[in-house]
Design a protein around this nucleic acid. Sequence first.
DNA 1: CTCGTTCTCTACCATTCGGTAAGGGCGTCG
DNA 2: CGACGCCCTTACCGAATGGTAGAGAACGAG
Lengths: 203, 203
Amino acid sequence: MTGPTTDTRARVIAAATVAFADRGVAGTSLDDLARTLGVTKQTVLYHFRSKDGLVAEVLTSGAQELEAVLLSASAQSEPGWDRIETVVRAAFGLAVARPELLGLLRELSRLGPDHSQPVLALLQPLVDAAVAELEAGMVDGRFRRSDPRLVLVSAYAAVTGVVTDGEVLRAVGVTLDLRVAARLRRTVLDFLRAALVPSAPAP
Amino acid sequence: MTGPTTDTRARVIAAATVAFADRGVAGTSLDDLARTLGVTKQTVLYHFRSKDGLVAEVLTSGAQELEAVLLSASAQSEPGWDRIETVVRAAFGLAVARPELLGLLRELSRLGPDHSQPVLALLQPLVDAAVAELEAGMVDGRFRRSDPRLVLVSAYAAVTGVVTDGEVLRAVGVTLDLRVAARLRRTVLDFLRAALVPSAPAP
DNA sequence: CTCGTTCTCTACCATTCGGTAAGGGCGTCG
DNA sequence: CGACGCCCTTACCGAATGGTAGAGAACGAG
């Protein structure tokens, strides 16, 4: 059926994901994009009916990948602090291996609801599950009491901000490589553990 | 000398700051900008030699304002946890009153070094001072031992991310108003206190 | 009143933008 | 072989982009 005789389509999505996250959707022209792929703009427009269509596909593709990684991390861990640590580790893994996926999320605010809504709808169950689990942990005393939604937002902001604000990282004299990412991951996890786990024992 | 007979120039900078932070530099045309101000594009180009020139002035102007607010907050507080809390409160105040200033920082990565370098140079002393103070606190035991640069990055990412990712906030069922900002501020401060202050007493 | 400065306008330009039209190379299947 | 469908091309197009040239309104100084 859907015989992918060529991988051009996939290559366009991959390159567009990087470009959109890096220079923004408005800052990426179809000509630029096509040039980096060694094809013409019309080739891109053959596979996607318009730039808007490309944006939509890039977003849903990225969101699905994001969802898969986080879901897998969640499934491979036990509820409680272990799961939080596993998911955060997965997020930092993405931050190093595919930073454009997290960068793409930041572009959501700039695109209209037509684009952001499908992505948010796809990720909504993940958010709800995370909130529910945090709440459950707070009820039975494993986690300190606070607003789970705000904890989630803060954690998300810390992870994605760290990944995406490359320039600001440089301002404090840090460049994001594997070693720094590992230490940053520890810092964020320390933050989370200190704020969430009542007795906060060092593992 | 520099007689500002009209405030058009200032109005342009203000509107451009908001637009650049909101829709990005690439996503903001001079025509759009001028239209929101009720003037023509050529009026904008009279006050600033080019779009690039406007971008440069918007960035330095925003960076100076940012610096002033943070510096003032720092000056009005005593070293130690009190200062951290005061500065974070000032940052959240900005987040509510002038979110575009923080949003502008995120745009830095997309503009070349020619634009980001002056901003970073201006904010560098603040970063250095913060690192030095965190380090001092860690040496004399007021703060838990960790890498002050990474703590700083995490805190910055948490604050700015929370402010700028409006769409993501909505995804978790939160809209950033005064009340939410206050609770978010408390959450972030709780994070910081739990991670930094050894005995972590509730104030 | 007149001159010069400051500010904003209309008119225009070259380039780039996203998008359309049409055709050619090529493997597959009848 | 020949017709068809897939993939990518060249050749354009109208609109929007950043930017230039120059005229005119407002106004204070001489």
